[in-house]
Nucleic acid binder design. Structure first.
Lengths: 190, 190
DNA sequence: TAAAACCCTTAATCTAGATTAATGTTTTTT
DNA sequence: AAAAAACATTAATCTAGATTAAGGGTTTTA
């Protein structure tokens, strides 16, 4: 069962009783996304967060010149959401779509907050993964400010070897903040 | 009392009883930092988080060429920490120092986690401000990727007019990811 | 199975912002 | 009050990476 992947993820941080597992289960929705289909679109109220159990999604911002800037990839075992819209209830500024045919477990913000009330353990879990999220994005920001593109790419490969194999170059370039042409140059001894 | 500023900050998100306030108070330490003195240095175990009640601090990374890249400013009513070291217990890679004579309330990670056990309301508070932190730094990353320096500076001024007045240009430049020379040019009709 | 649609490569040219350097001002320390 | 340190300005030169463009490959869709 795909929900077991989520249970395992949660149990890296807290211990769950069977009752808590079934409670969580009741608050989730299973959904599949065909390649290139949207989970979130700019302008929507994105009050769902997704835990990917199969496939790959990405969140990205489209700038005023139409260029895409990728904030996050999410393969199996990763959460993805427009955190701004999800937590504040305002309109999303990000898009989230599937780069492969994808299966995910969705939780609404409403259900998440209910879960926190009923069982503070879940609040602890999300507090921890949110802390980890901050650390990881702070690190990325500092890398963007202090490293040249070839070094950033080397770190990407080291950190996410699977993504480097699995994703098209265009997507990796849009994540690193460079053009696909320049990434091509880097890859072929630039 | 300077701790009232923290109570007010917390009560934007949750309601506190007098008992909870005094409990929190017991877990905090008051400390002052003279201008240019360190709260955290690279290589230390930075197991304290600071809530600034007066003055200004900054967290920054020093790259291999000796350049400083500022991750965060914290004036009155802001928390600041090396989140990586604070949450994982590993050695800090950031420095945090005072840009002005500063007063702050410190909480150790140990006490914070105790507080969460004793009173889950505090876990909720920190979950919320951590969520807000993610949103804000995600936004900054996307701005860095999608905007030119003059636009980033304009947004900075709009978002933090006080910091723009209060901080030297060198510090603002190190936050925006540009040189002070180029910021000078931008400011004088660039 | 053809034709879109997407994806990758290479190379010439261009530009946002860095670097260097010189000069002046303001703030801090002695 | 002097000296030192930090801060700001301006301008010439330089460079990491963008842009443009053209050609070839591969995967999807009809």
């Amino acid at each position: 069962m795909s929900i077991d992947l989520l249970f395992q993820n949660i149990e890296k941080h807290i211990v769950l009783t069977d009752k808590e597992k079934s409670m969580l289960s009741d608050f989730l929705e299973e959904k599949t996304f065909r390649k290139r289909h949207y989970f979130v679109q700019e302008g929507q109220y994105a009050n769902y967060s997704a835990f990917v159990t199969k496939g790959c999604m990405r969140s990205y911002y489209v700038d005023t010149n139409g260029f895409e800037h990728i904030l996050q990839f999410a393969i199996e075992d990763w959460w993805i959401a427009d955190m701004m819209s999800y937590t504040t209830g305002k309109e999303a500024r990000l898009n989230i779509d599937a780069l492969e045919n994808t299966e995910a477990l969705l939780i609404s913000r409403e259900n998440q907050l209910k879960l926190f009330e009923v069982c503070p353990k879940f609040e602890k879990y999300f507090r921890i993964i949110t802390e980890n999220g901050i650390v990881s994005i702070q690190n990325r920001l500092l890398e963007n400010m202090s490293l040249l593109a070839p070094e950033r790419y080397a770190n990407f490969v080291k950190k996410y070897p699977i993504l480097n194999q699995r994703l098209p170059q265009t997507q990796i370039a849009a994540f690193l903040g460079i053009t696909p042409e320049f990434l091509s140059k880097i890859r072929n001894r630039g």
